[in-house]
Design a protein around this nucleic acid. Structure first.
Length: 457
RNA sequence: GUGGAUGUAGCUCAGUUGGUUAGAGCACCAGAUUGUGGUUCUGGGGGUCGCCGGUUCGAGCCCGGUCUUCCACCCCA
């Protein structure tokens, strides 16, 4: 058989031991915070029914879902024949693919909640750390397979949840070593209010998508886009003072209340944001800047209340986290009136940021603490009980299989960054005093097994 | 989906207007050193120059296609 060049699919990666140590540092930190706030872990399958996923992420999102071709004779089983094979691929698709890789963790969670509603005690606080897949074109900070770390609450409309998510972001990212990041907060009701006061309720998507780009394409760019979408210069004149709000969060809120005085929905949104800010005021953040940003829209069309986005200010990178409240997500699966709010950490982007800022602790790569080196089968036999004692004392240790030169064994310890070695030869076996070597300083001493264990504990 | 770059040893990269047998550093293996690594010295293995095709007496170099990675747009974590 001709050998093929080994490679992985576009946008996917292998993770080697050094990378996994760093990735686990991120996952463990975030999971630890989730647990501390009372969230319980679940997992859902890598694949979902295609019908579960389609229509939840907008037309653009649907295109980015990885579909799984049906097994078996998918042409015959799907009833494909001369007449419908020529139909457009949108109609052909459900006939030949009934499964797809999950696109995010929120929709599968909504599906989970509806399926398990009778076993769940509400409010239900769950977290989930799993990969998701998107058929996007890869670029900086964008992969086709990446991990999300989600925490959501369903069955509670209290704004305390929103406030807690701000605290979770602050605590987890601070623990990871980020020094300067902003949690942006907005509220869908404020965006609705803005649309209402200019009488453009039907165009709220176009409106929010356009003003979301303010910091990227500037005011002129936004105006140009709005004009293309059918907004009048009169609408834009009304919008300008709203989207150009500046000052403290309180000042922005005061101006907004003024501008949205004709919109009860908009005022409700202002109240909600104010409540969250008040919770946080009582419980100061360690590192994060919390900023009301009314240009924050995010494409997901199911947010109904709070909207979150987290950005680092230390390196150029897209958002490293996002989330919001969705009042009717489970409604799509037939369970009405259940509200949910959640956030997500983008683990792979956080990794890239931390790598660039050199924030990973040195010890993240260290695994084995001590390597036992011996010369022959006799030494190996002598070393085995010691190895067990070390491990029983929770000291990760290895015994290099006998036969290799000591040079080779010490090279192995170096390559694996093992900080201590124990050399066992005939002298050592006779005296019971073992050659214990600190690989960093090069200092070697003769110590008993008890003393070595005491040193390593 | 649109546009622009990129690809030479395991890694980082040289490679002249197209011209003999494609190089360096690091890494790896062996020896100097039959009980001691990180330093040093000596030697060694490693390449279908991303892949396919074209132009040419001759292609790592020029042309077309394709794949990969990267960058921007769109969108997003």
């Amino acid at each position: 058989m001709a050998s093929i060049k080994p490679s992985v699919p576009k946008g996917t990666r292998d993770f080697s031991p050094a990378e996994m140590a760093k990735r686990n540092f991120i996952f463990d930190t975030i999971k630890g915070v989730f647990r501390k706030y009372g969230y319980q872990q679940i997992e859902t399958p890598a694949m979902e029914k295609l019908s579960t996923l389609t229509g939840k992420y907008g037309d653009e999102g649907d295109k980015l879902i990885f579909k799984i071709l049906n097994n078996g004779d998918f042409l015959a089983d799907g009833g494909i024949n001369e007449s419908n094979i020529t139909a457009d691929s949108k109609r052909l698709l459900p006939l030949i693919a009934e499964k797809a890789l999950r696109y995010d963790l929120t929709v599968p969670f909504a599906r989970y909640v509806v399926m398990h509603q009778n076993e769940i005690a509400f409010p239900f606080k769950r977290f989930q750390v799993q990969p998701v897949w998107r058929a996007d074109r890869p670029q900086k900070g964008r992969y086709r397979e990446f991990y999300q770390c989600d925490a959501d609450v369903v069955g509670s409309d209290s704004l305390l949840n929103e406030a807690e998510f701000v605290m979770i972001y602050d605590e987890a990212l601070s623990k990871l070593g980020l020094k300067d990041f902003t949690i942006k907060i907005n509220n869908r009701k404020i965006l609705s209010g803005i649309a209402q006061v200019i009488d453009k309720n039907d165009n709220i998507i176009d409106l929010t998508v356009a003003i979301d780009k303010l910091d990227k394409i500037g005011l002129d760019g936004v105006i140009k886009e709005l004009l293309e979408k059918g907004f009048t210069t009169h609408d834009i004149e009304q919008l300008k003072p709203i989207i150009l709000l500046e000052g403290t969060n309180d000042a922005k809120l005061a101006s907004l209340r003024d501008a949205l005085s004709e919109s009860p929905t908009g005022l409700k949104g202002c109240d909600e944001v104010e409540s969250v800010l008040n919770y946080i005021a009582n419980c100061p953040l360690r590192t994060a800047k919390l900023e009301l940003d009314i240009t924050l829209a995010r494409g997901l069309n199911y947010y109904t209340g709070a909207i979150f986005e987290v950005k680092t200010n230390e390196v150029a990178m897209g958002s490293i986290g996002g989330g919001g409240r969705y009042d009717d997500l489970t409604g799509m699966f037939g369970l009405k009136g259940l509200t949910g709010v959640g956030i997500s950490f983008g683990a792979d982007r956080i990794y890239d940021v931390m790598e660039e800022l050199k924030l990973f602790p040195e010890t993240a790569g260290e695994t084995t603490r001590v390597l036992i080196c011996c010369f022959d089968a006799e030494g190996e036999k002598y070393a085995l009980p010691l190895l067990k004692r070390l491990r029983d004392n929770n000291i990760s240790s290895e015994l290099y299989p006998a036969g290799a030169k000591i040079k080779k064994q010490l090279d192995y310890a170096n390559g694996k960054q093992i900080p201590y070695t124990i050399v066992i030869g005939s002298d050592e076996m006779r005296s019971g005093l073992l050659a214990f070597k600190d690989m960093n300083s090069g200092v070697q001493e003769k110590l008993s097994a008890e003393e070595i264990i005491k040193r390593l504990k």
